[in-house]
Design a protein around this nucleic acid. Structure first.
Ligand SMILES: [Mn+2]
Ligand SMILES: [Mn+2]
Ligand SMILES: [Zn+2]
Ligand SMILES: [Zn+2]
Lengths: 147, 147
DNA sequence: TTTAATCTTGAGAATAAGTTTCAAATTAAA
DNA sequence: TTTAATTTGAAACTTATTCTCAAGATTAAA
């Protein structure tokens, strides 16, 4: 069984356990998201679905995202220009996002040690950490060179 | 000379150097911000000014904030519910903000080592870091105990 | 199956932070 | 002063996200 259909089955279970109804819209949205290999926002996702001929409304996309976050398949990873960006978080720990303030490009940096230390800091302060956002704002290599 | 009037003088200089005009509105806003000991958002700041009898408009508050960020007196430190929060950054390095997803309280955690490592990570990747946001989302001690 | 209760949907209205517009007021240099 | 350039307040605008509600879909029971 493919990873995707495994997740779809899991999601159906999750929905049922919550006493909600499993709909084709919810499944369509999940499947489309699982195809994304990068960060995405609601508009991008919605446009992809429409192009494929899907009839889901933007409202349903907005309504499904919190469910997928709760189920643990995606996470909000940063906000830019008052828009939220998400990414699939299968086996993926939170990580650093470097955001270039000139070209708005976003790059990922993984640092396991840093991730661990962040967890520790929360625990030291008697907090129960769930997730985190670490965004470094600056100038990327290309913009520095004036490309 | 007080720290505040020193900064006010500096700010006047900064404004002049940019070829802009030094106005009472800009000074009022700066002075009010310097009084804040915690994180603030535009609405809070605007309300404080109005209560004091100030006639500044919200538009001017929105227009002055980027100048104060550029001058280095304040920084945007996190976003919550589609609102930006700022704080005075006199001698204050960026630091960790722990945000309780239940009570929405925000706590600060300082970790110089972490701060240094974040800078290094950016440089390793050939980025010029300017600032960063590190927000840990979780449950605070009080909320865990059900207070 | 049918039924019936409950939930979800799409469409569009509503909300609200932040930005823009523009005429009137203010600044600052001469 | 005079004058050119900038800034202001008020209100209109923009835009992501949320809300509303009637119509349609799902589910468990009959
Ligand atoms: Mn990422
Ligand atoms: Mn802080
Ligand atoms: Zn760049
Ligand atoms: Zn709390």
């Amino acid at each position: 069984m493919s990873v995707t259909s495994e997740i779809v089955k899991d999601f159906k279970n999750f929905i049922k356990k919550k006493g909600l109804k499993y709909t084709s819209e919810r499944e369509e949205i999940l499947k489309e998201i699982l195809k994304s290999k990068q960060h995405f926002d609601v508009d991008e996702l919605y446009m992809k679905l429409r192009k494929k001929g899907s009839k889901v409304s933007k409202a349903s996309v907005y309504r499904t995202i919190p469910l997928l976050v709760e189920a643990g398949y995606i996470q909000e990873v940063y906000k830019q220009d008052s828009r939220s960006y998400y990414e699939v978080t299968l086996d993926k720990l939170p990580h650093i996002h470097f955001i270039c303030i000139k070209c708005k490009s976003v790059d990922e940096i993984i640092d396991d040690y840093l991730a661990e230390r962040i967890q520790e800091e929360a625990k030291n302060k008697n907090y129960t950490p769930l997730t985190y956002h670490l965004e470094i704002f600056g100038i990327c290599h290309k913009c520095k060179k004036g490309v």
